[in-house]
Amino acid sequence: MSGPVTQNRAGRPALAEPLWVKALVMLLALGFLGFFILLPLAGVFTEALRRGLSTYWEALVEPDAFAAIKLTLLVAVIAVPANMVFGIAAAWAITKHKFPGKSLLLTLIDLPFSVSPVISGLVYVLLFGAHGLAGPWLRDHGIQIVFAVPGLVLATMFVTFPFVARELIPLMQAQGSDEEEAAITLGASGWQTFRRVTLPNIRWGLLYGVLLCNARAMGEFGAVSVVSGHIRGETNTMPLHVEILYNEYNFVAAFAVASMLAILALVTLLAKSLLEWRHGAELAATTRRH
């Protein structure tokens, strides 16, 4: 917490809080993060490394763990791009156009945030399960959705549905449509306008939304737990594998796999921060407009 606490960006005293306020805010903020994020994280890593690095490594390359890692990546690779396309489309429609029922649409997009993960999984069981609306038909045609990969993908899509859209909408709202309108007036097509004008403006927001969506897709537990069927080596994603290991009293391996998820998330988020910082000037030029 020591170090150069500079006055503020411009160094104008009129805009700076008294030192004690600054210290207090920092103390509150860092203390809060420490208690709620750093300590649990430290707990995960302490448990994972309790028996040394070699045990940690063994837990990750064990065949079932490896299958879980592969399955998790597969699910994310399908769910995330789908949500990305949707997010861009939704943000475009909502921020560049006016139409009745916008608030309702926004609320519907937010809805998956507030649906209990248990319900998010259950809805697909009610729809595609053996006794679901489409279940008997699917069974007759030999299509397995729940308790197989498609179910896992659907549940993950549902849970991570709003992330990209939620990230882009405020950003594009703040940026306004002037540049796009100018491009259109100058004769650019819609697609050209999007590629050449909008995409460069929103790329960091988009990247961030995709990263978050990806992190959540890989970490989702409740919803996939309902549709997975828990078949070892086949429909167990990483979070489910963590639960299995934990229930086998194999705490070290459970936390090793969990820490792997945490590391994946931290690395991607940190990489994004660093990229942003490297391209900071470019970024400022495109997004900081008034």
């Binding site: 600054k22 993060l33 978050l212 970490g219 940190l270």
Partner: peptide
């Protein structure tokens, strides 16, 4: 505010999204 390690702090804020909820609970 500027302080050392700000990028890291910024990154870990999103951790609750990524950590499986069961792991967080445990």
């Amino acid at each position: 505010y500027e302080f050392p390690g700000k990028k890291v702090v910024d990154a870990i804020v999103d951790l609750p999204f990524a950590l499986p909820t069961a792991v967080a609970g445990i």
